[in-house]
């Protein structure tokens, strides 16, 4: 018989974990039979899921127990650094040296939006309560990281595609912003579309993750919905702010001091 914990969640045992893994093993066998070639990636991803989430669970358990603002801030800093690193990796067309501006973007949007939610809206007491701050920061950072990476990659890929046009405009006297502003605007918009789409589809096509979690934990679905609204709005705001900031901080790097676009072959 499965045991029930205080929060109303039915706890999962190792046996049930093993059953879920069995389904993945089945997919792996299917992949081998059909020569899909995904069994190796699937195995690695499954192992990573196990390790990463169990480590996360242990770390969170430890952090919740310690209840120290410094530990919470240190974990937030680590999350931001990891997000900035991921952005750099996912935007291979961006100029070198955007780690700094990605870091700054994640720091400002991540901190501001996370603490706006926990401090002003949810009014967590004390302000650093890990149970609230860390999951919300995770959602804010994870989503804005995706948007920022998309906007950056799009900006610099599009600038390369339009290098000739940029050159013609600079030759007419355009500043870097005048020559590439239209491209940058389109790229920022592209970075925001997934976020806006997911807001528009929320509750119709899928139950958002946070609400799912709260409902599973036995919360009143309407209260869970309020929470989810706050988080979705703030995540969208974070993504928008982050994309605008990251692109504006970095687009000038692709121009020389004289305002000339550095197309492929002229980059050192």
């Amino acid at each position: 018989m499965p045991e029930t914990t205080a929060g109303g969640v039915i706890a999962i045992s190792w046996l049930q974990l093993a059953m879920a893994t069995g389904f993945v093993v089945f997919v792996g066998i299917l992949s081998m039979r059909l020569a899909l070639g995904i069994e190796k990636d699937l195995a690695i991803a499954t192992v990573r899921t196990y390790i990463q989430l169990i480590v996360l669970g242990l770390v969170l358990r430890w952090v919740f127990g310690i209840d120290s603002p410094w530990i919470v801030l240190a974990i937030l800093a680590l999350m931001m650094a990891a997000a900035a690193q991921t952005i750099v990796k996912r935007a291979p067309d961006a100029p070198r040296g955007i780690l700094g501006s990605s870091m700054l973007t994640m720091l400002l949007t991540g901190f501001t939006v996370t603490f706006a939610v926990t401090g002003l809206i949810v009014q967590v007491d004390p302000w650093y309560r890990a149970q609230y701050v860390i999951p919300i920061a995770g959602m804010v950072l994870g989503n804005s990281m995706n948007g920022v990476a998309l906007a950056l990659e799009r900006t610099f890929a599009d600038m390369d595609t339009h290098a000739e046009e940029i050159l013609a405009l600079v030759a007419l006297g355009a500043s870097p912003w005048e020559a590439s502003g239209d491209i940058v605007r389109v790229a920022i918009r592209a970075g925001l579309i997934p976020t806006i789409n997911s807001m528009a589809a929320a509750g119709l096509v899928f139950i958002p993750g946070m609400m799912t979690g709260q409902v599973l934990a036995g919360a009143d679905p309407l209260h869970a919905a309020y929470y989810q609204i706050v988080v979705m709005l703030m995540v969208s705001a974070a993504t928008a702010l982050g994309s605008v900031m990251a692109v504006l901080l970095s687009f000038r790097r692709r121009f020389s001091a004289d305002g000339v676009y550095l197309e492929k072959g002229y980059r050192t």
Binding site: E164, E165, L167, A168, L169, G173, A174, S175, E178
Partner: peptide, 25 residues
Amino acid sequence: LLPQRATMRSGCVRHNLSLPWNLRV
């Protein structure tokens, strides 16, 4: 400098011809 390939921005001919005067310089 006039690059070899003509660059037309989206918009009408008037907009393209008067483009240099939209620039701060």
